[in-house]
């Protein structure tokens, strides 16, 4: 029964992904991407990765959607489309947003080459998963390296009930400092590039 839930969730993920790229309205596309992240958060919860699920829900579904909307306010709402005759036109000028006469170009070199690259990458990734240990295998390398040490010594050494926080804040403290500085740098970069300066 619970496997059925997993299959349904993964199916929803695929549906959301396909819907997001096939929509003409970029605003709806952004919202669908947000729901993709929400389903992904449920999948993480099913895998018992609650911290990751929390991050996915707040960052992927929450803030990314908002930042995309902010970026969308700088561009136009509708995707650049082609009329049936073949010439390019801009649907943002159209008053009727239903876009009955608008169509995407069926085939183009960029689309076909993109499809080939995606299929190739997917095939390589699937080939790569064949060498991976079984799901939850206690002898897999990720469980035998430092994970056992964290689980055994994390509680007495760091004395923090949430083991993920213990690893992030103490054992991997430098990593977390680096991540914080990356976010800080992103903020500084946005201020330097996009802020309107007063003319002096």
């Amino acid at each position: 029964m619970i496997e059925l839930l997993d299959i349904l969730l993964l199916l929803f993920l695929v549906i959301c992904a396909v819907a997001a790229i096939s929509m003409r309205d970029l605003l709806s596309s952004t919202i669908v991407l947000g729901s993709y992240s929400l389903f992904m958060a449920v999948v993480w919860t099913r895998l018992n990765a609650v911290d990751v699920a929390f991050t996915e829900a707040s960052v992927g579904a929450g803030i990314t959607t908002m930042l995309m909307l902010a970026a969308l306010s700088r561009t136009k709402r509708f995707e650049f489309l082609y009329r049936k005759k073949g010439q390019q036109e801009d649907p943002n000028k159209e008053t009727n947003p239903l876009l009955k006469n608008w169509k995407r170009k069926r085939f183009s070199v960029t689309k076909v080459s993109g499809l080939i690259v995606v299929l190739l990458t997917g095939a390589i990734l699937i080939y790569g998963t064949m060498d991976m240990p079984d799901f939850g295998d206690p002898n897999s390398p990720s469980y035998t390296h430092v994970a056992t040490m964290y689980i055994e010594r994390g509680q007495p050494e760091v004395n923090v009930p949430n083991l993920v926080t213990a690893v992030l804040a103490s054992y991997r403290g430098y990593d977390t400092l680096g991540e914080t500085i990356v976010i800080f740098t992103a903020g500084i970069g946005v201020i330097l590039m996009l802020r309107k300066r007063k003319k002096t």
């Binding site: 902010a70 700088r74 914080t180 903020g187 946005v190 201020i191």
Partner: peptide, 19 residues
């Protein structure tokens, strides 16, 4: 500290990116 950085950077990015 992390909370302060992340919150203010997100607010900054939104204010600077939005039209």
């Amino acid at each position: 500290g992390i909370g302060i950085v992340v919150a203010s950077v997100m607010i900054t990015i939104f204010f600077e990116t939005a039209n």
